[in-house]
């Protein structure tokens, strides 16, 4: 059995002291340790941002790609070798701003990957601009008079797009978050966890205290009830209460790679390269 610290690299995290990313990272490592998957079979596809600097500190296979693009890379890896456990990680700007289109289609494709969004409602690495999940009215360097847009609701969005596992975690409760991450990775299909992660340096609104006062853990909710999940997803907007936990899960939906007949017997990476093109040539006569 591995320990969380087995997933440390030689590089120390570079996040600000008190950053929610520490909690997220700790929970991630704990989830990986508990899942007990050989390290070489885990693949992390990271975007760009404070969140994705985790690529340097986490000892798994890593593709530290572009801002907004961890999902397509993760999907490519999974289609090429579905024996790997593939996890995409990025921030809220990465996932709901730059990469919004990929999120939409990843939800409906139901690739068997997990997707963890470090949602701090602000752009951190670019030193504090409004993000797609910033609350309306929040002042930032890019919207000094306050955000005009209403925030994206990632939970409601994922549900509406047909995601088969939708959860929300909070870096203030590491054991609970680790449990959610574990469930998302184990989930057969697209496992989405929106993770509330305070940015102490740039977000003075969504502080640790802010979340502490509002979060509560879902207990006993029927995760197969889509309509109920949709209602719960709106609680933060309507009642200023923030449910944590699994909103919805559906494992009866087939995952993407299992619907490709050419992948039923072996992974793509195991296919023999030479092919017989004679019949193809013949068909062009």
């Amino acid at each position: 059995m591995k320990k969380p610290n087995d997933f440390n690299t030689t590089h120390e995290p570079t996040w600000c002291p008190g950053c929610g990313n520490f909690g997220l990272w700790g929970a991630f490592k704990q989830a990986l340790a508990e899942l007990d998957i050989p390290r070489h079979k885990i693949f992390g596809s990271y975007g760009i941002g404070c969140s994705s600097n985790g690529a340097n500190f986490t000892k798994i296979n890593v593709f530290h790609g572009l801002h907004g693009r961890p999902l397509p890379v993760a999907e490519g890896v999974k289609m090429a070798n579905h024996d790997l456990t593939v996890i995409a990680l990025g921030g809220d700007g990465d996932g709901f701003g730059e990469g919004g289109n990929h999120f939409m289609h990843a939800c409906r494709a139901n690739h068997d990957i997990a997707y963890f969004v470090h949602d701090n409602q602000i752009y951190g690495l670019t030193t504090g601009q409004t993000s797609p999940t910033s609350a309306k009215g929040i002042k930032s360097k890019s919207n000094p008079l306050g955000a005009i847009d209403r925030p994206v609701n990632p939970i409601a969005l994922a549900l509406s797009l047909g995601a088969t596992f939708v959860a929300r975690g909070f870096t203030g409760d590491i054991p609970h978050l680790a449990k959610l991450m574990k469930a998302a990775i184990k989930h057969k299909g697209f496992g989405f966890v929106d993770i509330l992660q305070p940015c102490f340096t740039f977000n003075k609104h969504n502080t640790h205290q802010y979340f502490r006062e509002r979060v509560y853990k879902l207990a006993g909710n029927d995760t197969s009830d889509f309509d109920k999940a949709q209602k719960l997803a709106r609680e933060w907007d309507r009642e200023d209460k923030i449910p944590l936990g699994i909103f919805f899960q559906n494992e009866s939906e087939p995952v993407f790679h299992e619907q490709l007949p050419q992948l039923t017997k072996e992974t793509l990476i195991k296919k023999k390269l030479p092919v017989n093109l004679k019949p193809d040539f013949q068909s062009y006569i």
Binding site: P72, M79, L84, N101, H102, I269
Partner: peptide
């Protein structure tokens, strides 16, 4: 034995193909 993916946009296309290539 080929997998062909009509992806959501060209940005996804080129990133996805690099994921597959990275996997070998």
């Amino acid at each position: 034995g080929m997998v062909v993916r009509h992806a959501e946009d060209e940005i996804s296309v080129i990133n996805m193909a690099q994921g597959a290539s990275t996997a070998g």
